[in-house]
Amino acid sequence: MNNELDIHIGVNPARCYQCGKCSAGCPLADDMDFTSNVVMRMLQSEDESLDKELLQSQAIWLCASCEMCISRCPMEIDIPKIMDYLRQQSIAKGLQNKSANKNIISFHHSFLDMIRFTGRSYEIGMIADYKLRSRKLLQDLTLAPKMFLKGKLPLFPEMVKDRKNIKRIFKHIDT
């Protein structure tokens, strides 16, 4: 995957000299199975089994794209871009991490599906969809009514008029 990264997103993992400044500043490093500098090391190894382990990891889904790592990286390595690529590859190869698949990835799918059909995100519909996917039926049961009362959850979705155009965009990426 090491070479792919250079070709597809123009990022060369060989530049990483393992200083660990990314992991040191990463807000989620504590919860990750592989911290960002370890991710870089795994890529550098050009070892297929490590590539697979990486694509199956939870870390790539926990990354919140806060961009702290690249903003402090002395070698200016675009780690968030690498993370995006790894997530996309993980899905393309069907190697999604099991526990992330239940929540984080399901949420992403719910979110995108909502846009696919309405052009905008619409919380109630999306959350309902997410609950079905994640089977977390009880989550946020107390929060939703409060939000509803505060007028934060409109009952009907706002929709883009030119939904054909939105569909076109999604169609292109589906194929």
Binding site: C19, A24, G25, M68
Partner: peptide, 21 residues
């Protein structure tokens, strides 16, 4: 073995955030 990400001050101490690579 690691580089320090940032330093901030709290209660008269300097909090040094690094990582052990």
């Amino acid at each position: 073995r690691g580089r320090v990400s940032n330093i901030y001050e709290k209660d008269g101490k300097l909090i040094v955030r690094g990582a052990d690579t």
